[in-house]
Amino acid sequence: MKQINGRFDVAILGMGTALPVHSVAQSDIAELIASTLQDRPDLARFARRVFRSCGVETRYTCESNYLDPLETCRYLHSHDASVIPTTEERMDTYKREALPLGVEAAEKALKDAGMSPDRITHLITVSCTGQYQPGMDVLLIRELGLSPRINRLPLIFQGCAAGLKAIQMARDVVSGAPGSQVLVVCVELCTLHFQPVREREALFAASFFGDGASSCVIGQPEAEHRHYLELGSGYSVLLPDSTEDMTWEVGNTGFDLFLSPRIPKLLGTHLEDELRVLLGGDKLPELWAIHPGGRGIVDSVQEVMRLTDEQTQYSREILRTAGNLSSVTIMFVLNAMRQKMKERNEASTEGVAMAFGPGLTAELMRFTYVKAYAPSVKEQDHVLL
């Protein structure tokens, strides 16, 4: 296995994604919410405009109740507060629905990596939309046939940036303990936390979140590996004067999310300097895996970094076809990018991944798409000897 400057290469060797069976057209959700605002025609018009312009066409949900008529849709019922699901009810649904999605994504990632479950040494589970104990990590061990002695690292309630944070944690695990194989599993059921909308601010959060799961296997690439993502340096940074611009708190009827309309502007103000730090003077890479926290966020990154439409296509396509899946989303973007590079038979290409969460936190990481494993010069010399 390749070693550079005393450090072993670490890579995403396989990836998998999963979506619930229920898909909902964005136009249908917009009309459903607008119909709850018959006494607020100004807000109903605003809702239709926000939902139409946010870059989403389809979302997925684990909750079939969203497919019901307004009169029986408990999550958006605005006339009788007693029928709105409590946080306890929502957590019961999460406990029932999260595991199958996580298992599906993990099985795909293991198969894609050519990795048997008994080789996994570490399990990182990620979610900010549900909690229970024993947690999803324990149940995944049983369902996937992982070792009961596996090192478990739950990463909970960290928001949209947590998927990329988990990838960087896994990279550090493998770097510090060569031979480790880390399985990362992210599951988010965002639609369980929809609330009846009565204020403009609530419409932004309601306009683009959906449900899904993603997973990846991270370890050291070997001769048989192809089309993988080699993980480079990265870090987290708290952006200044932004603590209150994204909040996620537990309420009596689910978790309450607030997203400030200032977020795209804040990213535009601070992100370029941080990316220069990350790149350390190197030229801008070709590949850009941007967490599509909303159309405005992708627009802001594209504008400040002077990216082409082709460079943001992966993020925009995931947003369009599935919405923002919180921590899950960045792996959807990376997987779509990797598949397209594979289809085009592209050569190895440098990239940057980024995701954003409460704090405001920016999670930034360099990576390289690698078409085929190539041994280092030292390894080649050893073979010749």
Rank of each mutant, 00 (worst) to 15 (best):
1 M>S: 04
3 Q>M: 10
4 I>M: 01
7 R>P: 10
7 R>E: 15
8 F>Q: 10
11 A>D: 07
17 T>D: 06
18 A>G: 08
21 V>W: 09
25 A>D: 12
25 A>G: 07
25 A>R: 13
33 I>P: 06
34 A>D: 10
39 D>H: 09
45 R>N: 15
46 F>H: 14
56 V>E: 08
59 R>I: 09
65 N>C: 10
70 L>M: 08
84 I>Y: 07
85 P>S: 11
85 P>A: 13
94 Y>W: 07
94 Y>F: 15
95 K>A: 05
95 K>W: 10
95 K>F: 09
97 E>A: 10
98 A>W: 02
100 P>N: 13
101 L>D: 07
103 V>Q: 00
108 K>T: 12
109 A>E: 06
113 A>F: 03
115 M>W: 13
134 P>D: 01
137 D>W: 05
143 E>M: 04
145 G>E: 08
149 R>H: 14
165 K>C: 14
165 K>G: 15
166 A>L: 04
168 Q>Y: 15
170 A>C: 08
184 V>A: 01
185 V>Q: 03
187 V>S: 01
187 V>D: 02
194 F>S: 08
200 R>E: 15
202 A>L: 06
209 F>H: 04
211 D>K: 03
212 G>H: 02
220 Q>A: 06
221 P>K: 00
230 E>S: 02
231 L>K: 00
242 S>M: 09
243 T>D: 08
244 E>S: 06
245 D>W: 06
251 G>N: 02
252 N>F: 03
254 G>W: 00
257 L>P: 05
258 F>G: 01
259 L>W: 03
260 S>D: 03
263 I>F: 02
269 T>M: 02
284 L>N: 14
287 L>W: 04
287 L>C: 05
288 W>R: 08
289 A>I: 00
291 H>R: 05
299 D>R: 02
301 V>A: 00
303 E>P: 01
305 M>H: 00
308 T>G: 05
314 Y>E: 09
316 R>Y: 10
318 I>K: 04
323 G>D: 07
326 S>P: 05
332 F>D: 03
333 V>T: 04
337 M>D: 04
340 K>A: 15
343 E>L: 10
346 E>P: 00
360 L>F: 11
361 T>Q: 02
362 A>G: 12
366 R>H: 09
368 T>W: 01
370 V>S: 00
371 K>Y: 04
378 K>W: 07
382 H>W: 12
382 H>Q: 14
